[in-house]
Design a protein around this nucleic acid. Structure first.
Lengths: 325, 325
DNA sequence: TAACCTCCTGACAACGTTGTCTAGGGGTGC
DNA sequence: GCACCCCTAGACAACGTTGTCAGGAGGTTA
């Protein structure tokens, strides 16, 4: 900017005014400055601007894994809202590691992001307190924070979705319904287990429940084991999209009624089509980021806790009767 | 930092030294400073640090659409390499819009990213010249830049992959092989058309080629039209993952041999399994970012142009003979 | 005891912006 | 012709950090 100023024969401040479109600059002078800017290929140093003004026009997004379609859909929605507000997105994957989540959040905060959107991996978020107190708003999405902090959250109706899935299978006549879920330490997995259990009532049998960290081989083995029981399941409820795919791959055409949590591309093209409880990742991202930008615009109201609905999409796999298997 | 300094009763610079782990600070003093840091919840302002040092430890990634599995896989790989080098990732989706690509790159540069990884949407990259001259390295991945600039590129063997696909179908006995591709303005689509055409030789028939911007309805209609020709195709080669899915959805079980460019999850679970020419999105991302970090480490050698291999994965759909349809 | 060295600490400038304040030039009103 | 005001422009400080350099305290050597 200094170079531009001397090239145009004006003061620093005048260049600053032109760059920022501030009023009170003679059009002739402004034109001369613009010419100098073009000639020198100058572009404003945002770091300095941030330092001076305090706002970075950057939002930090912490998700579990950007290459998971669920989270990348969520991320895309956040990105779009951010762009609409003139913000950029700093993003990072926690890989389900609380330590990494924390590190990402701290790094983002050190770079003075204006706000955070977090899919938490851990359940202790006391480390966020200083940042929140310093005025950096955070919105938790897909999973809530630990009890230490009270911030905006956007979740989907996990338990309700699970009840929906199990009720659907029960309507088709199933009484032995297995649940293949993620590690119970994960909020959504625990909630879905609750819904599953509630909808089963007296039919609940712990022998038909497998919950473990994503591990294709392990969950597949659990399912095989269940199928070998004297009173095997006639239907399966899978706790997330990855597990649904794992299960399909394990079954490989063996007929077993199936309802999966999370919709996925091609679910309709498989034979039979896969019945799912669909949530709306883009909706989660959109709502969460709109909440964040409302905070950034100055909303100081109490923390909001939103829940987005889920819906069951029947495609065939969930409508098979017990006698089909 | 100023507050920390006065709280600990030391000078600014001493706090700076402690924060940066610089030698030459009395352990007692350092401990006092650390206590003050904890008490005040201080975290270093990276903007100021960047301003002072000139390096942001940030890499910019411009891709087409973060929610596309191909690009999110690529993005994830870039992220991992960046993390390994202590860098954060600023990312943005161009949505196949050259204007937006340019805007993203400029915004990234204004924030002084240390380097750029770009999947270009446009073909004029003269706008990057000032940045390159200023020493910001860029690596183009999946598609090359326009002729105005000569930078590192990492592509996959598009034409070779297409030849592979068509040759595979020809071996199964097909002579009427349709090509459903993306807009010919997109580099990869054009290359794949070239490979398709080369492998067909005299069998090439423009009536069996559809190339258009991603548009489910349009491509589906083109395919339907081809199937209504007096001499219809007995096989289809689809130009990318999205189009493969579109085609599967259009065909909905109608038997027609199919080979798709790009592998996708569940391709093996469909009936028949979908034969694909698989490229390695994570590999593209990894190689590109390693190239970038080599530049950031000071490598000033001539621009490298790498090509990653593709491989054909036979799963059934590409092995059907013409008489099956 | 003087000279020197090491270890630790602090003062100060600088990075590139922008907010605030001041000032000159020219026009307008009386 | 004088007072006043508006328009434009520039000088200067400040944002929070780090690099450079200077200097004091204490120990060692001659």
């Amino acid at each position: 900017m200094k170079d531009v100023a001397s090239a145009a024969g004006v003061a620093l401040k005048t260049v600053s005014r032109v760059v920022n479109g501030e009023p009170g600059v003679n059009p002739t002078t402004a034109e001369r400055v613009r010419a100098a800017i073009d000639a020198l290929g100058y572009s404003r140093n945002e770091s300095a601007r941030v330092l001076r003004q305090g706002r970075t026009a950057t939002v930090g997004l912490v998700i579990e894994d950007i290459s998971d379609p669920f989270y990348s859909g969520l991320g895309r929605a956040v990105e779009q809202v951010a762009i609409a507000h003139g913000c950029l997105l700093l993003s990072g994957s926690s890989g389900e590691n609380p330590e990494r989540e924390r590190e990402l959040v701290r790094t983002f905060c050190a770079r003075r992001v204006d706000g955070l959107i977090v899919v938490p991996a851990g359940d202790d978020h006391s480390y966020l307190r200083p940042e929140l107190d310093a005025g950096t708003p955070a919105v938790f999405v897909d999973r809530p924070p630990g009890p230490e902090i009270d911030v905006d959250t956007v979740l989907c109706d996990n338990a309700g979705g699970a009840r929906l899935a199990v009720a659907h299978l029960r309507r088709a006549g199933h009484r032995r319904i297995a649940f293949l879920g993620d590690s119970p330490s994960i909020f959504t997995a625990a909630e879905r287990l609750k819904g599953y259990r509630a909808a089963l009532g007296g039919l609940f049998d712990p022998a038909l429940v497998s919950m473990r960290a994503p591990d294709l081989a392990g969950t597949g083995a659990d399912l095989e084991h269940m199928l070998g029981l004297p009173d095997p399941p006639t239907a399966v409820f899978t706790g997330n999209g990855r597990l649904t795919v794992t299960t399909l791959r394990t079954l490989r055409g063996r007929p077993l009624a199936l309802v999966g949590f999370d919709d996925f591309e091609l679910a309709d093209l498989l034979t039979p089509g896969v019945t799912v409880v669909a949530q709306d990742p883009a909706g989660l991202g959109r709502v969460a980021s709109e909440l964040l930008f409302r905070r950034l615009a100055g909303d100081r109201g109490p923390a909001q806790h939103l829940q987005l609905p889920v819906r069951l999409i029947a495609r065939g796999s969930g409508e098979q009767s017990p006698s089909d298997s």
